[in-house]
Amino acid sequence: MEQSSINRLERQDPEIATEACNFSISLIPALLAFAVLRPLIHNLQSQSLILPLFLSACATLCFHILLCWYLVFKANFRIVGAALAIGLSYCLNAVILALYMRYSSSCEKTRVFIFSDIFSCIKEFFSFALPTVVMFCLEWWSFEILILLSGLLPNSKLETSVLSICLTISSTHYFIPYGIGAAASTRVSNELGAGNPQAAQLAACVVMVLAVTEAVIVGTILFCCRYVLAYAFNSDKDVVNYVSELVPLLSFSIIMDSLQSVLSGVARGTGWQHIGAYVNLGAYYIVGIPLASVLCFVLNLRGKGLWIGIMTGSAVQAIVLAIITVTTNWRKQARMARERIFEGTYSAGNRSV
């Protein structure tokens, strides 16, 4: 019921709020499956076993499409069926990857498992995990605050609909640079751990070029399709026209999001999660959201002002992370990574004795 109250606070239609509440509750099992799936994915990524991940994702996608169609239309579970399909698809993907790790010869040397190491490594794990969680949450929560603020505008239904469409497009695209950033995180961390600072630096440069090139292409396509883009979500003429006005800003925002997501991946691979958390805090909550509020409510730019503010936050985040990456002493980072590896090996050896 709290979810429904939140949606009503955003001045959404009561029927939409109720459906969102049902979907959120039904999505709880998917969270549990996702919690198992993510460690499996990162384990294989760290070993550069990308093909099994790709094949597993393709098989899961085919299964998900059929299952979702059946639960939504044939079983008539509607929105609840869509949520259940997501959870079951995550479970299938996790099972496939777990079986691969258990029986594949590619994982033979990484299947050694010492149960006692779990508790001794929790402190070290949380030192990296918590800043990473904060790093991601601060960014995503800022977009949720953006939608919440749009509900305070006079014509809130139009503003919320337009911003939701732009946010959906941006979020859908985000997984492309996020995947590149994940590859950067794995590559950079592996090269630093192997004592190859030049290779780590090269990997950071390559993924930045890839991310910017891909974002420019996507941004250009969106700009060229700005007058028909909103028809994929809404047929209301006011919404379509408003979205066409925001698409130039959306195109620039996609470029900034691509760059910052890749740089965030480099930061994770270098062990700078805590720095990334501070950067996100400053970029979105000291610069982005206050600027969005001023542009929206004081200068009366409405939804356009909200998007400019949050886009500025993304730009600040990308610029700061770029400066940190460019000024990095890669040799020093490689030495520190090697020291952490040897410390961990020495500690594990003492425990085994």
Results as ranks from 00 to 15, higher is better:
Glu2Cys: 09
Gln3Gly: 07
Gln3Ser: 08
Ser5Met: 12
Ile6Val: 05
Asn7Phe: 12
Glu10Thr: 13
Ala17Glu: 09
Ala17Thr: 09
Glu19Ile: 00
Ala20His: 05
Ala20Ser: 05
Ser24Gly: 04
Ile28Trp: 01
Leu31Pro: 10
Leu32Trp: 13
Leu32Ala: 12
Leu32Thr: 11
Phe34Leu: 15
Val36Cys: 15
Leu37Pro: 07
Arg38Ala: 15
Arg38Glu: 15
Ile41Phe: 13
His42Met: 14
Ser56Tyr: 01
Ala57Lys: 01
Ala57Ile: 02
Cys58Ile: 09
Cys58Asp: 04
Leu61Tyr: 04
Leu67His: 10
Cys68Arg: 03
Val72Met: 04
Asn76Met: 14
Arg78Asp: 14
Ala82Cys: 08
Ala85Glu: 02
Ala85Gln: 05
Leu88Met: 12
Tyr90Gln: 12
Leu92His: 00
Val95Glu: 07
Met101Asp: 10
Tyr103Leu: 10
Ser104Asn: 06
Ser105Lys: 13
Cys107Lys: 01
Cys107Leu: 00
Thr110Tyr: 02
Phe113Arg: 09
Asp117Asn: 14
Ile118Pro: 11
Ser120Leu: 12
Pro131Val: 09
Thr132Arg: 15
Met135Ile: 11
Cys137His: 15
Cys137Val: 15
Glu139Arg: 07
Trp140Gly: 11
Trp141Pro: 02
Ser142Phe: 07
Ile147Thr: 12
Leu149Val: 01
Ser150Gly: 07
Leu152Arg: 14
Leu152Phe: 13
Asn155His: 00
Ser161Tyr: 00
Val162Lys: 01
Thr168Gln: 11
Thr168Asn: 12
Thr168Lys: 02
Thr172Asp: 02
Gly179Met: 01
Ile180Gly: 06
Thr186Ser: 07
Arg187Tyr: 10
Val188Thr: 06
Ser189Ile: 06
Asn190Ser: 03
Leu192Ser: 00
Pro197Trp: 05
Val207Ile: 10
Val207Thr: 06
Leu210Gln: 13
Thr213Tyr: 05
Val218Cys: 10
Thr220Gln: 14
Leu222Thr: 02
Val228Tyr: 12
Ala230Glu: 03
Tyr231Cys: 08
Ala232Leu: 05
Ala232Trp: 08
Asp236Arg: 01
Asp238Pro: 03
Val239Lys: 04
Ser244His: 08
Leu249Asn: 06
Phe252Leu: 15
Met256Trp: 07
Met256Gln: 09
Asp257Asn: 08
Gln260Thr: 06
Ser264Val: 07
Gly265Ser: 00
Ala267Cys: 03
Gly269Arg: 03
Thr270Ile: 03
Trp272Asp: 07
Trp272Val: 08
Gly276Cys: 03
Ala277Ser: 15
Ala277Val: 13
Tyr278Ile: 15
Leu281Val: 14
Pro290Ala: 13
Ala292Ser: 15
Ser293Met: 14
Leu295Tyr: 09
Phe297Met: 03
Val298Gln: 13
Val298Ser: 13
Lys304Glu: 14
Gly305Glu: 03
Val316Glu: 00
Ile319Glu: 02
Leu321Arg: 07
Ile324Ala: 01
Thr325Leu: 04
Thr327Ala: 10
Thr328Asn: 06
Arg331Tyr: 11
Lys332Tyr: 12
Lys332Leu: 11
Ala334Thr: 01
Arg335Trp: 12
Ala337Gly: 02
Ala337Glu: 01
Arg340Cys: 12
Phe342Ala: 15
Gly344Met: 13
Ala348Ile: 11
Arg351Ser: 11
